[in-house]
Simulated scan of single mutants.
Amino acid sequence: MRFDDYRKQPLFWNGIAMALLTVAILPLLFLDTRTLLGVNVWIKPLKFSLSMGFYSLTTIWVLVRFLKDWKYQRQIQVALTITSLIEIVLITLQASRGEMSHFNVTTTWNQIVYSVMGTSISIFWVFHLWIVYRIFRKESIPPSVRESLVWGLTIAGFGMIIGFFMTSPRSEQLEAMKLGIFQTSGSHQFGSGDSGSGLFFFGWSTKIGDMRVPHFFGMHVMQIFVLFAAYLMNQRDSLTNQKLIRITGILFLLMNIVMVTQTLNGESVFNLNPIYTSIYGIFLLLIFVCFFRLISQPKKFHTQVTI
């Protein structure tokens, strides 16, 4: 595809804006030493700008390459762009104030910010699912390529919805609110005890359940399947390729569900629990087997006639 096909697309420029914001935030990590919950205040907007940037640039490739003739394509892009910009602007604003953007209900302003963010990401999720449906119904896409795109986008949608586990207020928080005490509503942590210092940069707990891990995993498995789709476009389509992609999609989705289950049980995904570790190991082994089977499939061939 030509660059001109992308430079007129709102979601493409959203991805570029996220990349520029990422570059702008990097010096602040060293110039601004303020911390929030033991982490530099600019880490969170940096993580979100990177995540949204990858999502935007991946999704725009899918839209331009496979849904260019869809009459609602531009409206979808505008909706995704606006909602993601609302999210990142509020996260960055709260970081500049030294305040939490998520779960923070300490003041009326913080409650409004949290509510607006929840609404915008819910709208974002609905439009994302619309793309999934449209790809699923697009019969002109080669079957194995369509299979890969549908699985990647669907698991990403599942990864997004995992976020609602975190936004639900806990029983003790509800009791405090009844007493007029407004501090936090929801949390990414599940389980009790010390959460530890957290994984470098990401901040994910390695001791107790942290829902950000399956949330991130689900959202960005999408990039793997989009790469599969790009690879399969240059391969001979076959029922075997479809089945391999389908099995890989099922394995990734089940792996994501197991992550959620482990987290809800109050245990970190990084904890070497023999049962969960064995399950992840089996899933990864089967995924690698499918991957190697996929790349070993016969390539497209062209018959040349010499006169």
Score class of each variant (00 low, 15 high):
P142D: 08
K44T: 13
K44Y: 10
N241E: 06
L294D: 04
T33R: 15
S195V: 10
D69T: 15
D210W: 04
L149T: 02
I155D: 02
S192F: 07
I155H: 04
F136K: 08
T261E: 03
H220R: 09
S238M: 05
R2A: 12
E99W: 09
N104L: 09
S192Q: 13
H302D: 09
E147I: 04
F201G: 01
A176G: 08
H188M: 10
I224N: 00
T263D: 06
D194S: 14
I91K: 05
F182R: 05
I82R: 05
P142I: 02
M219N: 10
A19Q: 01
G281D: 06
L153D: 03
N241G: 13
D32G: 06
Y276R: 11
L36E: 03
G209S: 11
D237I: 00
I247K: 11
Q9M: 07
Q94V: 09
R34Y: 10
Q304M: 13
E87I: 10
H302L: 14
F201C: 02
G193K: 08
S171A: 15
I224Q: 00
F48R: 01
Q189G: 04
R170D: 05
E267Q: 13
S296N: 14
F291H: 12
G15M: 07
A24V: 12
Y280R: 09
L149V: 07
S101I: 07
L285C: 10
V39Q: 12
R146N: 05
I307C: 04
T261H: 11
F292S: 01
L251K: 08
S140N: 13
V260H: 04
R293I: 01
F292I: 04
T277P: 02
G209E: 04
G198Q: 05
T35F: 10
I307G: 11
W125M: 08
H220Q: 10
R137G: 00
D5S: 14
V89L: 15
P45L: 03
K243P: 00
F164D: 01
S96R: 07
V89I: 15
I287H: 04
L28Y: 11
F3D: 05
K299Q: 13
N271L: 11
S96I: 06
V116Y: 08
T83A: 05
M166G: 12
